[in-house]
Design a protein around this nucleic acid. Sequence first.
DNA 1: GTGAAAGCGCTAACAC
DNA 2: GTGTTAGCGCTTTCAC
Lengths: 335, 335
Amino acid sequence: MGVTVKDVARVAGVSTATVSRALRGFESVDPAVRAHVLDVAQRLDYVGSPAAAALTTGKAGSVGLITPFVDRLGFQRMLAGIESEMRGSSMDLLLHCTGDPSEPHPVPPHKRLARRVDGFIVLSISADSRDLEQILRLGMPVSMFGSRGADTSSVRVDDRAGASRAIDHLVDLGHRRLGIIYGREAVDAGVLEHEMHVGVRDAAERARLTLDQDLIVAGDYTTSGGALAMEQLLAGDDPPTAVFAFSDEMAYGAMRTMREHGLVPGRDVDLIGYDGHPMSDVLDLSTIELPFEEIGSTLARNLLDELQAPTGAHRVVTLPTRLAVRGSTTGASAR
Amino acid sequence: MGVTVKDVARVAGVSTATVSRALRGFESVDPAVRAHVLDVAQRLDYVGSPAAAALTTGKAGSVGLITPFVDRLGFQRMLAGIESEMRGSSMDLLLHCTGDPSEPHPVPPHKRLARRVDGFIVLSISADSRDLEQILRLGMPVSMFGSRGADTSSVRVDDRAGASRAIDHLVDLGHRRLGIIYGREAVDAGVLEHEMHVGVRDAAERARLTLDQDLIVAGDYTTSGGALAMEQLLAGDDPPTAVFAFSDEMAYGAMRTMREHGLVPGRDVDLIGYDGHPMSDVLDLSTIELPFEEIGSTLARNLLDELQAPTGAHRVVTLPTRLAVRGSTTGASAR
DNA sequence: GTGAAAGCGCTAACAC
DNA sequence: GTGTTAGCGCTTTCAC
């Protein structure tokens, strides 16, 4: 179908072995020969077959990106970081979305994927997930977002500190009655959810504040979930004067609900999000900014490094968060 | 390294050919034998090598997604559609971002990619792009977003009608002085940009409206670009009473600028976007909604169908847009 | 420094 | 229906 090493070898007047070596820039090839081979390959418009190379070397030449969802802003930003980091390498990126974990997989897809890639980047899969177990069991290099110990390289964010920071900010503004919109129940310790809750609790304790359990509601990490959650918070007898949403997207939903109720963030109720998406600037939403692009590029770098020079060591990187104060938290509604 | 067809064949007491046939569900295999082989394969935890299969069949078993950018909301939504459609198939998705076309590619990446995939999904590359030429030259099945004729299967949106719709809406509200924030210059006919401009012009003509060239500014498709563009529009002697931005993201930027000027969309200046991202609902931004998820799934379906049963025919699908009227267009500022 | 030859794991003809 | 055989295009010993 195409031109192969054989063709190049024939035209260049050398063996296929030499072509192979020359093309990969081996030192052991005579510079003149290498130049000639490269020239012939170029002229013949030769492109190697990754499949054949993979078959012989056992290296696939690509990495798998595994994520439970694809339609979240954080994903997009991490992807941008991953992509830019991988641009330089010759590795390809294979995208695999696990989707709803409850759906049955006819063939465990990771086994299949594993034969196509040299390593994995895993984004935010809950620690209890069977998917995650399966991936780790494959024994391939894994770079993951959100650590669950040090059994892989990972990049994480200090969510505990970040959540504390958000609460501190609201308390500093004089708020004593806080609403919390969290994502999902924290099924086990160590996951993001759990860290956030702990961060909130710690900050509340430090401020000698008791959180009203009725003001802690789930928002499912979605905009509409956040809207519903806010609805619930506003429906109570004694609504909060300030709300902390565990994700910007939920905060956006909360803003919509507020608008529908004729309420203005920063005037009637203070609101702070978590993620720091660019959109939050537009919405004038205070938030805790996470460096998603950097998370992505670090994830990629860690994996690429390990693939290039396997050490077996696990790098664990914790990236900082930053409080961005905007018009949605003014303290005007504190009492 | 792993268990191979040979192992399965040996344990099952059949030939490798039979294993191969049984595993792929060929009719010609005795049902009892097939069941037995499947059972053995399962017990042995056999997973086929895609590389080896690809080498023999010439089919890579995956499709390449080519896009110039990864950090735009439309991309994310199309990706979600593509992903969900591909979930069912056994094809893998290889992501490739062309990035800034001005950057030099050491090895034309498409040639390399082409050897890894059976076909391409191409998102919004300008028709004049050299990338696109290269991809088409490969002679592989291509499913692309935004047609440039019928030399591939494509999914497009009637941007001309969509743009007209936006202008019609503003005119209906009584506006006569319109501002336009477009993305980039339309380099050649047929591309999205061009269609949008034509749609605007047609609608203006029908309304016997002359567009002030000073009120037509570029926003580079980004939020910050939109903010700058709005700045420019407001700085003039006779600012527009209503603005149409060619993308929601630019409209978001415009909203930010308005806020900074103490202006409220729908009260002081009407504003309508284009794309219909979920965020626009939160922002109460009127917009022309495009079915990005459906675009994505249709792109994927077209390609998968062609790969499964090659016909050489090119499907061209045009998907409709929908006007979503929200609080940012009330006509209050019309005069 | 270079070539010859032996596979990598699978599938596709072709016999039986 | 099933087995035998011959590759797919590359890399990699191992000689030279």
